[in-house]
Simulated assay, not measured.
Amino acid sequence: MTIFLYKLLLGFIVGSLIATFSYTTNLLTKSGAFAVIFIAGVVCGFGPWFTWLLLILFFGSSGCVHLAKKVMKIAKIDSIAEKGHTRDAWQVLANSLPAIISLVLFYYTENQLFMIGYVSAIAGATADTLGSEIGILSTQVPRSIITLKPIEPGLSGGVSILGSVASIFGSLLISFAFWLFFGWNHFSQLPTSVMIILPCICGIVNSIVDSLLGATLQAKYRCVICEQLTEQKKHHLQPSKLVNGISWFSNDWVNFFSGSLTVLLSWVIIFYMY
């Protein structure tokens, strides 16, 4: 119990440092900063020491891409997306909760199935985030994952070659880091193919499911002033008209459900493989 409390304290300290830096660089809102502190404490307390390094790799990679775009003065389209890049608590929790739940289950059961679920969820969140952040820089117009027709850049449900490549890289980054640094330690009984390929595939599936949900169930509105299709409930200070999806099904719910399905997929695959 004493070691557990020390790990919790360490997590809160490290989380506070990360949250402070992210808040001062406009990567997080105040609520997002507190959410990061909470998640860092839980991950450090319940997981092996490397698990929160994977979480840092997720937040760090997306943060670096954003800061690089800021330095290069590449603006993101904010008039369409539901929220800007600055993450609030709901965004942080939606991306992290499925992974956290799987990690806590691993702590109490020591079943490797749940650790693979954790890694798969982080790989999926990284794939989706990098796909969105980098994909919007594509010179080609994104296409709907459902109809393959061109859609507005920044609108959920759109895919591009650049974004797809970024998603694959993000998923592989987390999976390879998991195997490279920690495969010899806690999970030597798992073959390399499982430690790298399974989380990577699940992460890519997460990105695809995210786009599918974004194209079908996520709420989309049309501005009554400029008639632009947007994810924002208000545009030009006027209430927008719902034209597609479910009114309460925001991008945060898309991230949460896609992450949850990714964790469940990894559990099922490991269960039937071993």
Rank of each mutant, 00 (worst) to 15 (best):
residue 98 P to M: 09
residue 76 K to F: 09
residue 63 G to R: 05
residue 48 P to M: 07
residue 73 K to F: 02
residue 83 K to V: 15
residue 71 V to H: 07
residue 48 P to D: 09
residue 97 L to W: 06
residue 68 A to G: 03
residue 55 L to C: 02
residue 71 V to F: 10
residue 54 L to P: 02
residue 88 D to R: 07
residue 62 S to Y: 02
residue 37 I to L: 12
residue 78 D to A: 03
residue 50 F to C: 12
residue 104 V to T: 10
residue 98 P to Y: 09
residue 65 V to P: 02
residue 102 S to C: 08
residue 31 S to P: 06
residue 35 A to T: 10
residue 66 H to S: 14
residue 59 F to T: 01
residue 87 R to A: 06
residue 50 F to G: 15
residue 96 S to F: 07
residue 46 F to P: 01
residue 34 F to I: 11
residue 80 I to C: 12
residue 51 T to G: 04
residue 74 I to L: 15
residue 51 T to K: 00
residue 54 L to R: 00
residue 55 L to T: 00
residue 90 W to C: 12
residue 72 M to R: 12
residue 101 I to L: 14
residue 56 I to D: 01
residue 45 G to P: 00
residue 89 A to E: 09
residue 73 K to L: 11
residue 38 F to Q: 08
residue 62 S to M: 10
residue 66 H to Q: 12
residue 87 R to M: 08
residue 70 K to Q: 14
residue 85 H to R: 10
residue 90 W to F: 11
residue 52 W to T: 09
residue 47 G to S: 11
residue 75 A to G: 02
residue 86 T to S: 14
residue 56 I to P: 01
residue 53 L to H: 03
residue 100 I to M: 13
residue 102 S to V: 05
residue 74 I to K: 14
residue 67 L to V: 03
residue 49 W to K: 10
residue 59 F to W: 03
residue 97 L to M: 14
residue 40 A to E: 04
residue 73 K to G: 06
residue 69 K to C: 15
residue 93 L to N: 00
residue 95 N to M: 05
residue 84 G to F: 12
residue 94 A to W: 05
residue 44 C to M: 13
residue 100 I to H: 04
residue 45 G to L: 03
residue 56 I to H: 01
residue 57 L to T: 06
residue 31 S to C: 07
residue 64 C to M: 13
residue 79 S to Y: 13
residue 36 V to I: 14
residue 79 S to P: 05
residue 46 F to G: 06
residue 63 G to N: 04
residue 66 H to L: 11
residue 54 L to C: 02
residue 100 I to N: 03
residue 31 S to H: 06
residue 51 T to H: 01
residue 96 S to E: 04
residue 31 S to E: 14
residue 84 G to V: 12
residue 64 C to V: 07
residue 41 G to T: 07
residue 84 G to M: 14
residue 76 K to M: 13
residue 64 C to S: 10
residue 73 K to Q: 14
residue 45 G to N: 01
residue 33 A to F: 03
residue 80 I to Y: 09
residue 43 V to C: 04
residue 38 F to P: 01
residue 101 I to S: 04
